[in-house]
Structures are given as structure tokens and as C-alpha cells.
Amino acid sequence: MNVFRLAGDMMHLLSIVVLLLKITGIKSCRGISLKTQELYLLVFITRYLDIFTNFVSLYNTVMKLVFLGTSSAIVYYMRYDRIIKLTYDKEQDTFKYLLLVAPSAVLALATSHVYTVLEVLWTFSIYLEAVAIMPQLVLLQRTQNIDNLTGNYVFLLGSYRGLYILNWIYRFFTEKHYRQWLVWTCGVVQTIIYCDFFYYYFLSWQNNEKLALPA
């Protein structure tokens, strides 16, 4: 494992910690898209089905369990916690699941490397992860007064994706036969989706103003 991969994973973990701190600390999930969170939960479930059959390292197994556990907790809080669910912007969070899930499923069936259940679901998770942030970005555009934690959450997630690209570049030059066009294409698409957000995030940081995305 190289330093980019580790840093990427830590950013990912940190983004989840920031989100959980926001939700449980101030008992509010304002500005957070439940749809994106549920899609991430689906991504983790479909990708980590190999948790018992494909042992890579203790680090991987623990991280998989952490991601599954924390994303389940976030969805649980937003859906069922008596106080927190009241702060969810349900009317604004209108992105259609099917718009993201259906194309991912079709593409997974069409392009899977091997046709086993695990492999098709893994491919599905790669496609779905690339676009799962979209409901969140749409919701951010609609939210006035985005709070710092929400802005930082999305920034950390975007950084995780960027660092993974550096990790792939590193692996491409240091490992034999490391050719993963599917993963790379999806990863680059996913990172491009964040570009607009990054632009406004840095602008607000530079001008010391509150983050706001133009509609």
C-alpha cells in the first residue's frame, strides 16, 4: 500500500467521522442528502460481499467493516432518530435513485469482467460510487447557509477521490500488469463531478466567506 492510498482512505474515514460528528453532535442532518448516504451504503454492501471469501489484509477487513457500520449508522440516524430525522430536508432531496442505480446496473451487466454474482455486484458498486454524490451536490446547491461541517464533509470526500487517482498513477508505474480501465474511468469521472464544488470551496476559503454554490 502506498502513501496516496493510505492518505485517501484516511480522508474517506475522516469525512465519515465529520459527518457523524455533525449528525450526533449538533443533532442535525441539515444539508445532508439521505439519498447519497443510502447509495453509499448500497455501494459498500455490494462491493464488500467478498469480505469473508477474499482476505487481503487485516487493514482492509477492518476498514470494510468500519465503512459498512458507519454508513449504516448514518442512514439509521437520518431515517429513524426521533430528533435528527426532523432536520432532514426531505422536500429538497428529490434526486431519483433510479436515475443512478439503473444505468449502473445495466453497465455492470454489460461490462463485468467475469459473470459471477460477486463480480457483477462489485462492478455495479464501482459505477454507482462514481455518481452517488450527485444527490448531495444538488442538495448543496439548494441549501442556503451551508454549514462548515457539511462543506468540509464534501471536501474530504472529494480529496479521497483525488488521492486515489494519485494512488493509481503510482501503482501503474510500480506494479506489473496494473491495468484497471474500469476503475480508473469511473474514478476520474467521479473526481470531475467534484470540480465545480472544489472551485467554490476554495473561493469561499480564500475570501473567508461562507460556502455557497450558485444554483
Binding site: R5, N54, V56, N60, M63, E175, H177
Partner: peptide, 10 residues
């Protein structure tokens, strides 16, 4: 081997 390499990330 290819499978392992493809699936060793998170």
C-alpha cells in the same frame, strides 16, 4: 492474481 490486484482497494 488479477482478481486479488483488482480487489485489494476499498
Amino acid at each position: 492474481e488479477l482478481y486479488r490486484q483488482q480487489h485489494d482497494e476499498l
